[in-house]
Design a protein around this nucleic acid. Structure first.
Lengths: 367, 367
DNA sequence: GTGAAAGCGCTAACAT
DNA sequence: ATGTTAGCGCTTTCAC
C-alpha cells in the first residue's frame, strides 16, 4: 500500500529510528545533514506516517470524541463547529456522534470512541451523562457541556440554565405579559427541565400562572415548536387557564422551536409580537433572521468552545489535574419578537443588536 | 491500560487466536463450549478490542471520510446526518471535516483522513475535487456529491443543478415575473455556477433580462442572503436594469440565503410574495418555516445518502468495480413565497405541501 | 549522533 | 477444533 518508514530510512541511508526522530522532532536530536537527507527522502517518496500505527504504539490517537444531540439543531451545529475548529487547530481530529437524546446511541458512540482510543471526550449533556461505568472513562479527560455532572471527576462548563430562563421570562413580564406559555423540548432532557424551572420560578415570583397547562413539550425542531405553539394557542377557554384566555407570550427553550412557534402564530393569523410575543433560547444566528427577528437568551458557544478546548488540552497534557467547573450567564439579545421596538424598518445589522447584559458573565465554583 | 486479548485468552484457557475467532465470528469455527468460555471471560473482564490495533493489522479502519463545506448550512447538515446514520448502521465511523469552501482545508482534512486509513471517502464537491494527486486516493472508493468529476475514477451522484435552477426560475416566470434577480453563493463554488447558468438560460429562453447586474454573490448564510437581496433591491434606477425597476422576484441558490432574503425584504417594508417573490434551492426543513413558507427546489438528501452509502459499501467490499454515476432531478416544493396561494391561514403540514414533480427523478448515465 | 530491537494489540496463515 | 507465530508500521529504550 503506502510508503513505509523503513523505505524512507533505506533511501536516506539511515536507520528507521532516525526517521522517527526527524518526523517527531525528537525525542533525540538529529544532525543537520542527516535530517536534510531524511527530509529529502520523505519528499521524494511522498511518505506519510501511518497514524494508526503511531497511535497504537504511542498510546495516543490525537483524536477527541464529541457527543451532541444533533447538528440539525443550529445551536449544536454551531457549538460543534466551534469545538472542531479549535481542536483541529491544535492537531486533533474530532470524532463526532449524534445521540438524538437517546441513551443507547450515546453509549454506542462512546464505546466506539473508547475503542478507538480517543484522548479526551466532550459531551453535551443530553440525557445519560454517560454513566457507563466503563473504566476507560475514568482515565480520560472529560468535559461536560450544558450540565453539571454529579460525578465530580468530570470538568464542566454550563449555562446557568434556570437563571437565564428566568431572565428571559422576566423580560416578557416587563412587556406586560402574565399569561406566558412555555414551549420546551423532550421531558427527559436535563437542560429542558432546568429552563422550565426558571420559567416557573419567575412566573411564580411575578404572581403569574405557572401551571402545567401552560407548558407544551415537543421535539426540538421547527416542527415541534410549531405544534407546541398551536396546541397552547388552541387551549383557549380551558377552565385551567385563567379567564379562558390564551397565552399572550411564549418562552421557548430553543431557537429552533421558536422559529416554528413564530410560524404557527403567523399561520393562525396572529401577529408577533402584537398578539403573541416570543422569546427564544440559544442565540443562534438564525434567530436574527426570523420575521420579526427573535429576541433570545444567547449562550456564547464560541466562548464555551474556547474554555472547553483549553481545559481539555490541559488535561491531556498533564493528567490528574483537578476538574474545572464553571457556569456562564447568558445574555438576552433583543430582537422585536418580544415587543421591543428597536431598529424600525430599514435598519441594519440583525441578530446582534442591543444586548441586555455584557457577554458572557462567568461564575466559577472550582471544585 | 485496557484489558487485552491475551488476558482474555488466558482467563478462558484458550489461545489468543480463538478469542479473535469468537469476536470476529470467523474466519474459523469455534466449538460451542469454547465460545461460551471465551464470551464469559470477555464479559467478566469487560474486554473491548483495540480498534486501532485491529485496523492496523487488518488494513481496514472501519471508517469513512466525509468532506462537506459546513454544517452550519442546514442543507449540508441534513446531508451529513443522513450519511452518518446509514454508515453508522453499517458499522462504520464517519470522520467529518468542514472545508468552508477552502481548498487548503479540504486538502488538510483529506490528508488527515488518508493518514488514518479511511476505507472510503464521500466528498461534497466544494471546490477542488481533491485533485491532490495522492496515490492513496487512487485505490480508495470515492463518491462525489453535487458535482460530476472530470476524473472518471470516482463515483458521483449529483443534482441536475442547472436544469433544476431553470425549473425554479420558470415557476417564477409563470407567476408573471420577468425581472428575476439571482442571489448566489461564492463565485468559486462549482454548483453555484451551474445554478446561475440555469437561471440565465431560463431567463434568456423567456426573453427576460439575464445580465450580471441581476446577480449578487454572497456568503452562503442568512447574512449573505440578506445583504445580496438588499443590494439588488437598492439598485433601482440603475440604467443597466430595464425601466429602472427593481427585481420583482429572486431565485436564490440556497435555502439559507433565501431566509436572509425574505428577512431583507421585510426589513425594507416589502411584502413577500406581493412585492417580491422568492424561490430557494435545497429543500431543507427550515424552508417550511419561513413566513411565508418558502417555495424551494428540493434535493432529496435522504435518497442521495442512500445511494451514496450503498455504492460506497459495494466498492469497499469488492474494489475495482466500475464507478457509479447518476444525476437526480429535484422537485419544486411549493410554499407561498413564490405567489402560489396554497393552504391559506389556518392550514397545516408546512414544508411538504404539493410538489410539482414526483420525487426524485433519476437519470443515469453509467460510465 | 545513530543503529538494533522490543513491543503496542491485533489478524490470519500455518501449524497440529 | 484449536495453538503458534509472523508481522501490520510505528515509538522508544538500550546499546554503541
Amino acid at each position: 500500500m503506502g510508503v513505509t518508514r523503513a523505505q524512507v530510512a533505506q533511501r536516506a541511508g539511515v536507520s528507521p529510528a532516525v526517521v522517527s526522530y526527524v518526523i517527531n522532532n525528537g525525542p533525540r536530536a538529529v544532525a543537520a545533514r542527516t535530517r536534510a537527507a531524511v527530509e529529502a527522502a520523505i519528499a521524494e517518496l511522498g511518505y506519510r506516517p501511518n497514524a494508526l500505527a503511531s497511535a497504537l504504539r504511542a498510546g495516543s490517537s490525537q483524536s477527541v470524541g464529541l457527543l451532541i444531540p444533533t447538528r440539525t439543531d443550529p445551536f449544536y451545529a454551531n457549538l460543534a463547529e466551534a469545538v472542531e475548529q479549535r481542536l483541529s487547530a491544535a492537531g486533533y481530529l474530532v470524532l463526532a456522534g449524534n445521540t438524538y437524546y437517546d441513551r443507547s446511541r450515546e453509549e454506542r458512540y462512546l464505546r466506539t470512541f473508547l475503542d478507538r482510543r480517543i484522548d479526551a471526550l466532550i459531551m453535551s449533556a443530553g440525557i445519560s451523562l454517560a454513566a457507563s461505568g466503563d473504566p476507560a472513562l475514568e482515565e480520560l479527560p472529560v468535559v461536560v457541556l450544558d450540565a453539571v455532572p454529579a460525578d465530580s471527576l468530570y470538568s464542566s462548563i454550563a449555562a446557568l440554565e434556570s437563571d437565564d430562563a428566568a431572565l428571559a421570562v422576566e423580560h416578557l413580564q416587563r412587556h406586560g405579559h402574565t399569561l406566558i406559555g412555555c414551549i420546551a423540548g423532550p421531558r427527559n432532557v436535563g437542560v429542558e427541565a432546568d429552563r422550565i424551572r426558571g420559567w416557573r420560578r419567575q412566573q411564580t415570583a411575578g404572581g403569574a400562572p405557572a401551571g402545567d397547562e401552560l407548558i407544551a413539550y415537543a421535539e426540538t425542531s421547527e416542527t415541534g415548536g410549531e405544534s407546541a405553539a398551536s396546541a397552547l394557542l388552541r387551549r383557549r377557554g380551558r377552565p385551567s387557564i385563567r379567564h379562558g384566555r390564551r397565552p399572550t407570550a411564549f418562552f421557548v427553550t430553543s431557537d429552533i422551536q421558536a422559529v416554528g412557534a413564530i410560524y404557527a402564530c403567523s399561520e393562525m393569523g396572529l401577529r408577533v409580537p402584537d398578539d403573541v410575543a416570543v422569546v427564544g433560547f440559544g442565540g443562534t444566528r438564525r434567530a436574527g433572521y426570523t420575521v420579526p427577528p427573535l429576541t433570545t437568551m444567547r449562550q456564547d458557544v464560541e466562548y464555551i468552545a474556547d474554555v472547553a478546548t483549553r481545559e481539555l488540552l490541559k488535561h491531556i497534557k498533564s493528567p490528574g489535574q483537578a476538574p474545572y467547573r464553571s457556569r456562564l450567564r447568558g445574555n438576552l439579545v433583543l430582537g422585536r419578537s418580544c415587543g421591543c421596538d428597536l431598529r424600525p424598518h430599514g435598519a441594519s445589522e440583525p441578530g446582534d443588536g442591543r444586548t441586555l447584559e455584557a457577554p458572557p458573565q462567568v461564575t466559577r465554583d472550582h471544585v
